[in-house]
Structures are given as C-alpha cells and as structure tokens.
Design a binder for these strands. Structure first.
Lengths: 159, 159
DNA sequence: TATTGTTATACTCTATAACTATA
DNA sequence: TATAGTTATAGAGTATAACAATA
C-alpha cells in the first residue's frame, strides 16, 4: 500500500523498513553506514580503511599540509589524525617532514607508493560507486549528487 | 572553480571537501554520520539514541514481534537487540511478554508510555529533518527521498 | 598565553562465539 | 539438529583531557 510520500515500498522490504521508508533521516543514516562498509570491504586488499583514503586524498591535494589542517579537513580530531597518519606512514604511503617555518608542525607528503596506492583506491571507489548506485541512471546519480551537495553545504555544523 | 560533475563547491568549503565534493560515496557517508549525530543530540532529553527510536517504531508497527524479527528488521545482530530492548524496557517503554506459541520466544509490545515517548521522538525527528534539509525545497526533499529509496531497495546486501 | 602534536583513556558500536532452553 | 535469546568479550571508532615542545 502506497504511503503518503515517495514510492511504495517494494515487496521484498520488511515491514520495519516500510515504517522508515519515508524518513530521509533514516534512509541517509542507513545508506551512509552501508556504503562505508561496502567501500571498506573493497579496500581490504590495499590494507586501507575509507578514512585512510581520505587522508591520502587530502594530502595529495595539499602537499605540505599540517596535521592540524587534516583535523579540520577530515572533520576529525587531533588524536585520530595522529593514528591515521601513523598507519599510512608505516605502510610507506606518506611522510612527515619538518616544516621549515614552524618547528612544531609537520609538512605532510605522499610517497611515490602513496600516489600509486591512492590511484588504486580511487579506482576501487569508482567501482563501488557504480555498484552501490547501480539502480540509478546517470542522470539520477547526478541529481542525487547535487542534492547531497546542497545539504552538505548548509548543514548546521557546516564544513 | 567548477569541477567535472555537479555544482561548484561553495567558498566556505575547505580544499579537502572540494576533493570529495563529487564523490557520492563520501557525501553519503559523511551526511549519514552527521544527521545521526544531530538526531542523537536532539533525542538527549528523552534519554534515547536513534537506534532506540528504531526499536520503538518497529515494535509499534508489529506488536507481538519476536527479538529475531527485530534483528532482521533493524539490520542488526541478536546481542545488540538484547541490550537495546533491555534499555527501553528499563525505561518502561516496552515489554517482553511470553509468546504462547513458542516458549523460546518473546512477544514484544510497547507500553502506554512507550507510545507516548515514541510520538515525542517522531516530532523531534520531524524537527531535525526540517532543520537538516532546510536548504532543500519540498520538491527537492521528495526527490532526494525517492532517490534514496531506489538505492536502498537495491543495495547488494538488500534489506 | 596559544598552538602543534602526542599519549592515555574511556565510551560507544559492532561483531563473534559460546552457552541455555526450547523446538 | 536448528532456533530464540543471553552473556562475555574483543575490536573499531570517537571523544576528551593532560602533556611536551614550540610559537
């Protein structure tokens, strides 16, 4: 039986899911966890988690960034960033170099291997994206992306 | 500077966010965590977490359900369901009654207070929804809901 | 006095496996 | 032999506060 908003829930969906079927908060929360999990599984061969890919991405786009920059960029906290960087550094993907202008801070760089692994991770990301959103047409995926961008840009915490 | 797909990233967005600005996987994952956190904070006065609201919702729509039903419906596992139910039961919101047809299983019900608190939680959910998606028009929110429904219905794990 | 990075710690969530009582 | 529920436990993720070195 169709509900007030949106499409009727497919038969395969459980009664519970029907209850939350029109709740965008629930849908977003659930899909967020689900796609993170899927991405994490696809990354296993690279010994990386999605958060590590975020670190590599960030550093690749802002060579010489400090850990403080990472904290703000990753929507994270300083102690988490320490261990994320410890990890990718141990894998030989990133380096902490001294910052000549501020002896407290590091200047972060990817190694050659770091760039290679990041490229592989990005390919995996695209594969997972195609898989996860396979039921959407290209136009619909563009639409979804734009809507999510709009919400992201204006969420209370902001970015 | 506009990127290949989607809208250009707003000025307030950090360089890092620009990097992930067109990655629907990242957007979904980030917004999912963010809205869950926001909902959790709004629920503090009721002493509930989002997962507890899911439990109440589920039981309210399937009176007499077993814990096993909850496990499947909540995309969870049996031990988590035990503690979630312990919690809402201690708050006097739900009851475990014996199932007359199967002495291994419970039949779950909400108390009168459970229904009242669920109603309050649903109001809070609507408030958070309005707030979180405030930049979307009603039509856009409907669009987003339909897109998320489409993705949900067909994700590999399925429901 | 404020900031960068580190360590220690604790709390929540999630996942697993072993167990009981019933079927 | 399989299923409903429980317990114990361990791992990941997150958050906080205290601290050292430097600004």
């Amino acid at each position: 039986m169709p509900l007030k908003n949106g499409s009727p829930a497919p038969k395969s969906i459980t009664a519970w899911t029907q209850a939350s079927w029109n709740d965008p908060l629930y849908l977003l929360s659930r899909l967020g966890r689900q796609c993170t999990k899927m991405f994490a599984e696809a990354l296993e061969d690279l010994q990386l988690k999605p958060r590590h890919v975020s670190v590599l991405r960030y550093v690749s786009l802002r060579e010489g960034a400090s850990q403080r920059d990472l904290v703000e960029g990753l929507w994270s906290d300083s102690s988490s960033v320490v261990s994320l960087l410890d990890y990718v550094t141990e894998l030989g993907l990133a380096e902490r170099r001294p910052n000549p202008n501020d002896r407290r801070a590091y200047a972060l760089f990817l190694t050659k291997k770091g760039y290679q692994v990041l490229a592989e991770a990005e390919q995996i990301s695209e594969r997972v994206t195609q898989n996860f959103f396979s039921r959407l047409s290209e136009e619909q995926l563009d639409q979804l992306r734009e809507l999510l961008q709009t919400v992201t840009a204006t969420s209370p915490d902001d970015v």
